[in-house]
Write a protein that binds this DNA or RNA. Structure first.
Length: 332
DNA sequence: AACAGCAACAACCGCAAATCG
DNA sequence: CCGATTTGCGGTTGTTGCTGT
């Protein structure tokens, strides 16, 4: 059993220039056939493990000094999307860079950079949490250009808001499924998004046109994210669906950029964490839903198959939901 | 000037795979 | 083949230096 350096009375902590020199001299003279034996040969009061790390991460002559370049950054992002946290594998593509350096660079900079741009650093996909919708819903509901809100126009606004909610729901489900998380259609809606359940049941209108947008290849989340520029093209991904669902009369034109620019939806937007599909998250103390639905819609189903009730509500959408879920389940 | 907060980086630890006897 | 030892990897922690108050 390996004992720690402390247990062996060996030195820990930062290396001194003298120690570095001893290590370099020793390796130049004898090589590093056995890291275990090397400290004795070099006259160092360090464990072999510490010597190896110091050599591979800092003293090796082929170490590339200086900041990681933009090009290297691009490579790291791409390889991470491909390989995950296989730092040594990623490092093998970047001559002179160590796995430790890349790992640190990822954890301290790239991770934050991706998060700032609304990208989940684990999945490299846009973070389409359903609750991102909530700040937008009031705007959707109030974006009628006319000052006089007819009941019909209000209902229509709400229908479109619900459509947006559903669209984001699909994106979230796809993301969860593709990331390997199992989502049962029998889970209550609150499991997926406690705050959005009531919003989703507001409208029970057919939304086949929404699905047309979804089915368009442009929706594929990964294809919509430029890993190099870290710019999610979330807007463009959603646009096809809205071209079909949004009415131009009394509604802000979804194509005019006015909505997107003012909604702050994907720029400088603080994107919350992905919701977990785990029943652990089935708490009732979630943030209150700041969306007030009309009375007739204010009783979201609470039974165990509530989600199924909602998603499979009408025949038109039933077929599409099954397709979407099947597709997502089959995807690697 | 002193302090707190934060980011960046170096180094350590634990575990698992590979190698050795 | 099997247990012990070594090596490699990834996650985490500790230290240092910078910046803002």
């Amino acid at each position: 059993m390996e004992r720690t350096a402390e247990e062996n009375g060996l030195k820990k902590g930062p290396w001194t220039p003298e120690e570095d020199q001893k290590l370099v001299d020793c390796i130049q003279k004898y090589g590093h056939g056995s890291w275990k034996e090397l400290p004795k040969l070099a006259g160092l009061n360090r464990c072999g493990k510490s010597c190896r790390l110091r050599w591979t991460n800092y003293l090796r002559p082929d170490i590339k000094r200086g900041a990681i370049t933009d090009e290297e950054e691009r490579v790291i992002i791409d390889l991470h999307a491909e390989l995950g946290n296989k730092w040594s594998a990623i490092a093998s593509y970047l001559p002179g860079r160590t796995d430790n350096e890349i790992k640190n660079f990822w954890n301290t900079r790239l991770k934050k950079k991706l998060l700032r741009n609304g990208i989940d650093p684990d999945t490299h996909m846009p973070r389409t949490h359903l609750d991102t919708l909530l700040p937008v819903l009031p705007q959707l509901l109030s974006c009628n250009s006319s000052r006089t809100h007819t009941w019909e126009s209000v209902v229509r606004s709400q229908e479109n808001a619900a459509r947006l909610a559903k669209l984001l729901l699909v994106g979230n489900i796809l993301q969860l499924l593709k990331s390997g998380t199992t989502v049962s259609p029998h889970l209550p809606m609150e499991t997926i998004s406690p705050s959005l359940g009531s919003a989703l049941v507001m409208s029970r209108t057919p939304w086949d046109s929404l699905m047309m947008g979804l089915q368009s290849e442009r929706f594929t989340p990964k294809a919509e994210f430029d890993t190099l520029t870290c710019q999610p093209s979330f807007k463009d991904a959603l646009r096809p669906a809205f071209q079909n669902t949004m009415e131009t009369d009394n509604m802000m034109d979804i194509n005019s950029n006015k909505f997107w620019e003012s909604s702050n939806m994907y720029t400088d937007f603080e994107v919350p964490d992905l919701v977990s599909a785990s029943p652990v998250c089935l708490s009732t103390d979630q943030e209150p839903n700041n969306f007030t639905s009309p009375d007739e819609f204010s009783n979201p189903p609470t039974t165990s198959n509530a989600m199924e009730d909602i998603l499979m509500d009408d025949e038109a959408s039933n077929y599409y939901w099954k397709q979407v879920l099947d597709q997502a389940t089959l995807s690697p």
